[in-house]
Design a protein around this nucleic acid. Structure first.
Lengths: 155, 155
DNA sequence: TTAGGTGCAAATCTTTTGCAGAAAG
DNA sequence: CTTTCTGCAAAAGATTTGCACCTAA
């Protein structure tokens, strides 16, 4: 934990940025909630527990900065808010998402299944892949048990 | 063209919706720009050529409706606006995206490479796949020729 | 005729920005 | 000290909504 913060501090400083109290608190929240895909608003509420003076704008600025440094990944599930994922860069660990259109749950595939496809992209399209994103939408195992067949209905 | 509109009209009517002048104009714009990923604002400007009275809110409402009917797919590239893609449902044609982080260009892979992966998701996760989305971020063939190595710099 | 649609303007929501004061190195 | 940060409030965008008036079927 402390060592990961130290590492991020180095990354910041090597680019001329400072590790402020607020930034450290934000990073700690990210580390403590690695499993989740928190929005800036979610982060704000959690960070306030550690640094009550912090403003929402600072959270946005910090997440933006960490995003540029590739410490976090900014993702968008199309629900109107950006979410942030800590990047496990050491393991180059990309995960994929299973989004249930019925209950809204989001499960994860923790492996990276795209190695072969990335090679194909490089070979066939001369495109150098840096990152990728794969989401599946469908019905999760919990909902598919429930025999729930509702049709599209007018609002 | 006309037949595709007719089909969409059927889809609307089967759910109790009407094919208004504005909706038809919107659908025509979608058909004429199948290759692009237009935002609601883009759509609005193009639709106005055919139906000058239309309001932006109607474009949003129409796109939302077409999205519910799975006529279009709402996608989000993280640039702050939602974009809409006409769904080629007859061929179940899902394409993938190659997004260049250098020049911002977006190319497409017009095939569906995920068949085997979808089977794996169903088998290993008991998740019934309805749709998917795959984007690669990286350097496109145009930019990789240009020897452009800039580092992250403070704003 | 009548449910569903529309335009307009106002309201919401997320994210960004300007600025004067605060703090890290 | 000096440069980078921060909080606050205001601004900026994108999208949604309320409402009184239309219109497709």
């Amino acid at each position: 934990m402390e060592e990961r913060i130290e590492k991020i501090k180095q990354q910041l400083q090597s680019q001329g940025y400072k590790l402020t109290h607020q930034r450290e608190a934000t990073v700690r929240v990210l580390l403590e909630n690695e499993e989740d895909h928190l929005s800036a608003e979610d982060m704000f509420m959690l960070v306030r527990d550690k640094a009550p003076e912090i403003g929402l704008a600072t959270v946005y600025r910090t997440l933006e900065l960490l995003s540029e440094l590739h410490v976090v990944e900014k993702i968008n599930f199309g629900d109107g808010v950006a979410r942030y994922d800590l990047r496990n860069d050491s393991t180059h660990h990309h995960h994929h998402h299973l989004i249930c259109v019925q209950c809204g749950a989001m499960d994860e595939i923790l492996e990276d299944w795209l190695g072969p496809l990335e090679e194909r992209v490089e070979a066939e399209y001369h495109f150098t892949v840096i990152d990728h994103r794969l989401d599946f939408q469908g019905i999760c195992h919990r909902c598919s048990g429930k025999e729930n067949n509702k049709s599209t209905e007018p609002k």
